[in-house]
């Protein structure tokens, strides 16, 4: 159990670095880098912990992305940058690269295999499954990140109060 927890915590560090690399690639302002690292680690850890509890990858990703979305509102207020600057690099490590990659290989394979071939239907089933997983995980990411906006029904985070008004 203890080693499992350590394994998951260690992966959090790598989630952070993956997001950091993309942050640099997207030329984010320097003041946001540390926050991006922390948010990506937090989102990734949420996803992995939930998956450890036998929750499906789509729901787990949704939870991770929602956490990133909520944190990005606070980060945006503190560091004065739009929330997408934080949220997009932070959720990129959760993008289903492996599923998308397998779906692509599957599509290419299908185009070169005769329908009568025995492996055709198996490849078709795998490709469909990988493609659908990719699609749903991406939707979970985008909706998760947008959660604060969708719930508060505000067009800009400047109008979401992050502290209660003093009365």
């Amino acid at each position: 159990m203890a080693t499992e927890i350590l394994m998951i915590l260690e992966k959090g560090i790598w989630f952070g670095f993956a997001a950091l690399g993309f942050g640099i690639l997207f030329n984010v302002p320097q003041r946001t880098l540390l926050i991006i690292w922390i948010m990506a680690a937090a989102g990734g850890l949420t996803k992995l912990t939930l998956m450890q509890c036998n929750i499906g990858i789509v729901v787990a990703t949704f939870a991770g992305a929602s956490l990133v979305g909520v944190l990005s509102v606070y980060a945006a207020h503190n560091k004065h940058a739009p929330p997408l600057v934080f949220s997009i690099p932070s959720v990129i490590p959760m993008i289903p690269g492996a599923f998308a990659y397998r779906m692509m290989l599957g599509l290419i394979k299908l185009s070169g295999t005769a329908v009568s071939n025995d492996t055709y239907y198996q490849t078709l089933a795998e490709t469909t499954s990988n493609g659908l997983k990719t699609m749903f995980i991406l939707m979970a990411l985008a909706i998760g990140v947008a959660i604060p906006m969708l719930i508060s029904r505000k067009e800009t985070i400047k109008k979401i109060r992050h502290k209660p008004d003093p009365i």
Binding site: F17, F22, I24, L25
Partner: peptide, 8 residues
């Protein structure tokens, strides 16, 4: 750093 992201 992008290479580090790849390794991650």
């Amino acid at each position: 750093l992008v290479a580090l992201a790849g390794a991650s």
